[in-house]
Each structure stands twice: as structure tokens, then as C-alpha cells.
Design a protein around this nucleic acid. Structure first.
Lengths: 193, 193
DNA sequence: GTCTATAGTTCGATAGAC
DNA sequence: GTCTATCGAACTATAGAC
């Protein structure tokens, strides 16, 4: 028997505010800065109200993961459909700490929050495979070489974005410019194919 | 005007044990699992003794960073001097969570421990630039193309290693094989040049 | 060098009033 | 829907005995 406790509605404005505030806290101060007290303070409410909407902190994290992955997948779709340089647009999105930094905080949080680990792996895989499906045809059309399969190329682009967001967060940027230049040559060759 | 408190000697066997235990905790359970209590329990001593050797937890983290970076730099040097496939050897070292996983935990820890941020950036940069200095000549000799400068190539290799260690920690491996294959083609071309 | 004991803090989560 | 009040737990760090 779980917890038959009261839980706030999904449409609540307060609930949305709590999600916004928590997401910002995660990106700016790391997942460890997320506590019911810190979230409450930043949102201008009491800690108890946080627990009213999200019984446990895991629930809060999972709600953010769900909301963010949904909007990110939609964003990816739009990029590819409406943009004439979809690889470049995706690359720019990946370099944004609002996206990749948040994802990396989730990976880090999953270390001690086993409840989100499985959900996170599934989400990360869905995002990655969506990238491959949407951009794969263009990558293949560019004919960069046998090893540059869609999955390999997308993996490479994500890896460099990870590295840059991570290292930049501590103020280490050695090699970033040259690494980015290398990736951008690939990207431009694909976008222009 | 700091703290004129007693501090254990650097040569102490207990001190070394505490460093070993903490390092293992960081790799296996994440930096958040490191508390004076958890370290003490894993080492079979009392929390107060941890503070005897390391006044603050920041001191403990910094001591590990210092010890580990020293041994890692020596290891890199040996790889290049004694191994006939230094790029492959470095790649294998980077894929080991004992190395890259620990570094990533430090990056994550630096989020809330500003005291280690600067030291970490300096250490990461020294490791990276050492890789470039030691392996750069071989990379240039391989003539992979203008964009494949030593710094760009090393950055790429590190990025993919980061990604694999990170994602593997949550059980996400999509694209890893193909991404690794791509890197290994580069590596082998460099090692055989 | 190692311990016991403890002060002071922050946290997750709940009960129950309004 | 939001609050006050609170329990119990884990944490950092210190003082001081042995």
C-alpha cells in the first residue's frame, strides 16, 4: 500500500512554478542544491507545499525529466522540419547548458537516486535515437566515410557538447575551440549536402 | 588567522587508507556519498579521525585530486615512452571509470565546493595539455587532415570517453559501439603512422 | 593517534489547522 | 491550496579525554 496522500493537480500554476524554479536551480547550482526548503524559498512558498505537489523529491525530479524531455523532443522535430541547417541547429542546442547541463545534472543525481536512473536512461536513449532518426538521412547523404554512420556521428557531436558544457562549468576550456572547429566542419558538410 | 589545529602527518598509513577509501567511494557511489561518517565507517575508524587528518572535507577532496593527478601524469608519461601504441593505451585509460569517472565526480563536486573548482580546472588543463604534448607529434605525423590538430584530436578522444563513462553509469549505451569504432579508426591510424 | 561526546545545522516528510 | 509545527535522521566540525 503506497501513500494515499493528497497531491496537487497537474494543471496547477503553483506546480508549474515549482518545476520552473527547480529546473533553474539544477542548471545554476546543481541537483544537490535542490531540497524542499531551497525550492520553496526560491518559489516563495513553504516546504510543506512542495511536498503537497510532489510527495517525494524523486517525484519532483521525475516530473521535470518528463516535462523537459517532451519539450526537447518537440524542439528537435521543429529544428529538422523548419531549419535549413538542422545539424548546426542541433549542435547549438546541445551546447546550451539549459539542455545538456540539465541532462548532466540528472546523470549525476541518478547516482544516489536510483528511482530516476531507469527513467533517465530511457529518456536519454529516446532523445538520442530521435536525433539519429531525424538527422540520419542527411548524414548518410553527405557520405563522410564508412565509419561516419548516423549513430556514430550523432554520438560524436553529443560527446563534444557534453565535454564543453562540463568543462566550461569549472572554467576549463583548453582545446574547446579546436574541438568545436572539427565538429563544425562535419556539421557544415552535412548541412550543405 | 586560519586554524592552528592538529593535523596528521602526510606519511601516515591511516591517512593513505582514508584517501583510498574516499576515492573508491567517489567512483562507486559518487562524491555525494563522501561524508566524514561514511568515510570513517568504510575505513573502520571514527568520524573525528577523518577530521584529524583533513580539517574539512574540501581538504580531503583536494588531497585526492593532488595524489591522483600526480600518478595519472606519471602513468601517461610511461604509456607514451614504453608502449608501441600510445594512442590506444591512452584511450583505454580514458575509458576506465577509475580515471575518467573520478574526474567527472570532481567536476560535479565542484558545483557546490567552490574551494576545489580552481584547483580542478588547473589539474584538468595540465592533464589535457600533457596529453597533447606527449601525443601531438604522432598525431601530426599521421596527417589526418588540417582540422585534426593535436588539441582537436585529443579533445575529441576525451569527449567520447567522457560520454561513454557518464552514460554507461546510468545504463545508457546507445551509439557507443559505433562512436568508439570511429575513434578507434583515428587512433589506429595515428599509432601506425 | 584515536576515541567519546556534543553543539549546531540542514534535511525529508508528515500531521493537522485554516 | 497553503500554512505552522514538528519528528527523526544525517551531516560538519570541535573540544577534550585517553
Amino acid at each position: 500500500m503506497a501513500k494515499p496522500r493528497r497531491v496537487g493537480a497537474e494543471q496547477s500554476e503553483t506546480r508549474t512554478t515549482l518545476l520552473d524554479v527547480t529546473e533553474r536551480l539544477m542548471v545554476e547550482k546543481g541537483h544537490a542544491a535542490v531540497s524542499s526548503r531551497q525550492v520553496a524559498k526560491a518559489a516563495g512558498v513553504t516546504p510543506a507545499l512542495v511536498h503537497y505537489y510532489f510527495s517525494t523529491l524523486d517525484d519532483l525530479f521525475l516530473a521535470i525529466l518528463h516535462r523537459r524531455s517532451k519539450s526537447l523532443l518537440e524542439h528537435l522535430q521543429r529544428l529538422v522540419e523548419q531549419c535549413d541547417r538542422p545539424m548546426r541547429a542541433t549542435w547549438n542546442a546541445l551546447r546550451d547548458p539549459r539542455n545538456t547541463g540539465l541532462l548532466l545534472e540528472f546523470v549525476s543525481a541518478a547516482n544516489h537516486r536510483k528511482a530516476i536512473q531507469h527513467q533517465l536512461a530511457e529518456t536519454a536513449q529516446r532523445i538520442r535515437s530521435t536525433q539519429v532518426e531525424l538527422l540520419g538521412p542527411r548524414i548518410e547523404a553527405a557520405g563522410l566515410g564508412d565509419a561516419f554512420t548516423p549513430a556514430a556521428t550523432i554520438t560524436l557531436m553529443n560527446a563534444v557538447a557534453y565535454e564543453m558544457v562540463l568543462e566550461r562549468s569549472i572554467g576549463m576550456v583548453y582545446g574547446h575551440d579546436e574541438g568545436a572547429a572539427l565538429i563544425e566542419i562535419l556539421i557544415d558538410r552535412i548541412d550543405k549536402a
